[in-house]
């Protein structure tokens, strides 16, 4: 489904991070409605220092997802996040394209 090259690159980064003793969380797009920029299965991996690889949108929601990933790394609880359309409130996190996505965030256990 998603590009094989992407999935391999992200898995390699996760494996490298955990191999180096870093704590990691993985975010995955699990549902999309309308014109979402990244398909179901797209992934973003985040380490405990806030470094990230991959994507779950065109850059619109990555910041919010990274913050949730850092919390998941701390408390170990999975999270299901909903992102909808942004309106004029420019500070709100959302998708300018008018789509909606659901992103699952989980801590990686080795």
């Amino acid at each position: 489904m998603d590009s094989t090259g992407d999935r391999e690159a992200i898995l390699k980064q996760v494996t490298d991070w955990t191999g180096a003793g870093k704590r990691v969380a993985l975010a995955t797009v699990v549902t999309t409605w309308g014109s979402s920029p990244r398909p179901v299965g797209s992934k973003l991996a985040v380490d405990a220092d806030g470094n990230f690889v991959g994507s779950v949108s065109g850059g619109c929601i990555e910041g919010a997802v990274v913050l949730q990933a850092l919390e998941a790394i701390e408390d170990g609880k999975p999270r299901l996040l909903d992102f909808g359309v942004t309106n004029e409130q420019a500070w709100e996190v959302g998708l300018a394209c008018g789509g909606k996505v659901q992103v699952f965030v989980e801590r990686v256990e080795t």
Partner: peptide, 23 residues
């Protein structure tokens, strides 16, 4: 999530067999 399960899913696909990971 268990990293070994994800690694096995990708390795299985790379070896030419489909796999599914349900969460």
């Amino acid at each position: 999530m268990k990293l070994p399960l994800l690694q096995e899913a990708i390795a299985t696909a790379d070896a030419g067999r489909p796999a599914a990971l349900a969460t």
